[in-house]
Design a protein around this nucleic acid. Sequence first.
DNA 1: ATACATATTTAGGCTTGTCTAAAAATATAT
DNA 2: ATATATTTTTAGACAAGCCTAAATATGTAT
Lengths: 223, 223
Amino acid sequence: MNSSTEEDYLKAIYMLSAQHSSGVSTSAIAERMETKASSVTDMLKKLSEKGFINYVKYQGVTLQQKGSDVAIKVIRKHRLWEVFLCTKLNFTWDEIHEVAEQLEHITSVKLVDSLDQFLGYPKVDPHGDPIPDKNGNFHKIKEVALRDLKVGEKAVLIGVREDSREFLKYLESIKLLLGSKMEVLNKFEFDESVLIKVNGGNEIMLSSLVCKNLSVTYDKNKK
Amino acid sequence: MNSSTEEDYLKAIYMLSAQHSSGVSTSAIAERMETKASSVTDMLKKLSEKGFINYVKYQGVTLQQKGSDVAIKVIRKHRLWEVFLCTKLNFTWDEIHEVAEQLEHITSVKLVDSLDQFLGYPKVDPHGDPIPDKNGNFHKIKEVALRDLKVGEKAVLIGVREDSREFLKYLESIKLLLGSKMEVLNKFEFDESVLIKVNGGNEIMLSSLVCKNLSVTYDKNKK
DNA sequence: ATACATATTTAGGCTTGTCTAAAAATATAT
DNA sequence: ATATATTTTTAGACAAGCCTAAATATGTAT
Ligand SMILES: [Mn+2]
Ligand SMILES: [Mn+2]
Ligand SMILES: [Mn+2]
Ligand SMILES: [Mn+2]
């Protein structure tokens, strides 16, 4: 079995691989794990010896199949627990992450699949992220950052790229939730802020940082 | 915060204190924790320094209020999770213990109380053990080991004093469940086995070891 | 190509929790 | 009361994860 620390590293590498499609750097992992680069190097050596990752000094890291499998299982558990916390225990979407961060490490074959069934086999977690099924399969919706839309384009909010409480609370306060429809009215180059119309009503100005962290998909109902 | 190891030690000491009402010995803890006596000594020193226990070399251990509080909180979580696993996820009573052993260490103030509410504030866990409430209060029913009943006395099974899978599976196979009514028909001194009648029907011979580990309460309906 | 800046690894140490083997204290039997 | 057995503690070591400081490799600008 793997320690929960190893699981967290593999999960971090998995997430980072998805973004920067080449090898993942030591410093990127260190930042994500909120630890020091030297600690990361130690762990990379270990994970490499155990056959979870491909690691060559100074060259970054890629996951081996075995490592990817572990990461996906942990992510599955994380997201299922998030659904549980939201739908059954009335947690809000900014409260669930840190608890799920612990629950994802509980080991019991039966537990995960029973939980999945109990929740009705949900396809996405409360942040809009897809939940892998028992076999590790899940479909990515074609998503794009709000920042990359052009003026006049319409889209639906399907996920967030940042889980911090502050960010999630901010979104709630401006009534921007998963499923909200938005239209880009204007983009301002000097500070990269964007003016949007939400659900055909309110107009809101979003900062560069916010736009970067909102995942949307193009709205099919463009009429 | 306390590590999950510290929590497990405090829980073990709490359980053992309940039985042998004097100080708990190093070896008793070692046996319960499935570890070596020297490891226990190390931990006792630490728990003592932190103010959780009263520890004097060679003299055994008692819990301080602070230690008792921690133990009761962990026990509350353990038993609530056991109820969850049984009633919501269809685990059987022999499968729940080892998973609960992990879940009991999840730290979130909100989680425990939400779970309690979600489950409908259960009073006992699937093994018949009482669940402490938010404030750590719980009532012990007057219980006695089946072994201590006299011939002719009637009782109801309310708990088990041993959580091993083997034992629980054995009880299921002979259809002896929580709430079963039993009457002592005969006691055999040479091997301390006991002949009982279950629910007014089957007659079963129980070994000494089994009788020692069944908690019963006298049946009020004696007519 | 060289010099400087940044990223990464190595060296050495610390904490937690575990172990074995040996020493010391306590309990038991005659 | 003394010898023996058992329990408990101490001493010393190890693995996992983490850290700081120093060494080394890589990237960049001129
Ligand atoms: Mn985690
Ligand atoms: Mn999520
Ligand atoms: Mn435990
Ligand atoms: Mn129980």
